[in-house]
């Protein structure tokens, strides 16, 4: 059994803070757990904090992109926050641009963006 990345529920938001160097199995488990938790909790948004990650390779990058698509289908917005500059530069060189993934500089800005995204449509309607 490998460790699992905890998925925390705060109101209608799911918070994932990745704190360890990810093994591929953990990445796949996280994707699985997240989609289940979105449905269970009827979450409106997911924030994935990767500020502690020293590297994001194509496997993790793909999980972030896939996860954003899956949660959108399930009615939740995903925001990836806290990507380090060196990680961003490496991903670009690797050929990944995480198109379709919403991002924010840090957790605080990510939560604010999520609130804006979930509140705005109702507001403007």
């Amino acid at each position: 059994m490998t460790d699992r990345v905890p998925v925390l529920k705060i109101g209608d938001i799911l918070l994932v803070s990745i704190q360890t160097d990810l093994e591929d199995q953990m990445v796949m488990d996280l994707q699985d757990d997240l989609s289940h938790r979105i449905v269970e909790t009827n979450a409106k948004g997911v924030v994935i904090d990767i500020s502690a990650l020293e590297i994001v390779d194509s496997f993790v990058g793909r999980m972030l992109a896939t996860n954003a698509s899956i949660s959108r289908i399930l009615g939740a917005e995903t925001i990836v926050v806290g990507m380090r500059p060196a990680v961003a530069m490496t991903l670009v060189e690797l050929g990944l641009s995480l198109k379709g993934v919403r991002t924010a500089l840090n957790l605080e800005r990510g939560l604010r963006l999520l609130r804006r995204l979930t509140a705005a449509p109702a507001d403007r309607a």
Binding site: V80, A88, M89, E93
Partner: peptide, 12 residues
């Protein structure tokens, strides 16, 4: 373009 994309991935 690379700089623009990297900044975007960081949320800027």
């Amino acid at each position: 373009l690379k700089t623009v994309v990297a900044a975007r991935m960081m949320g800027a």
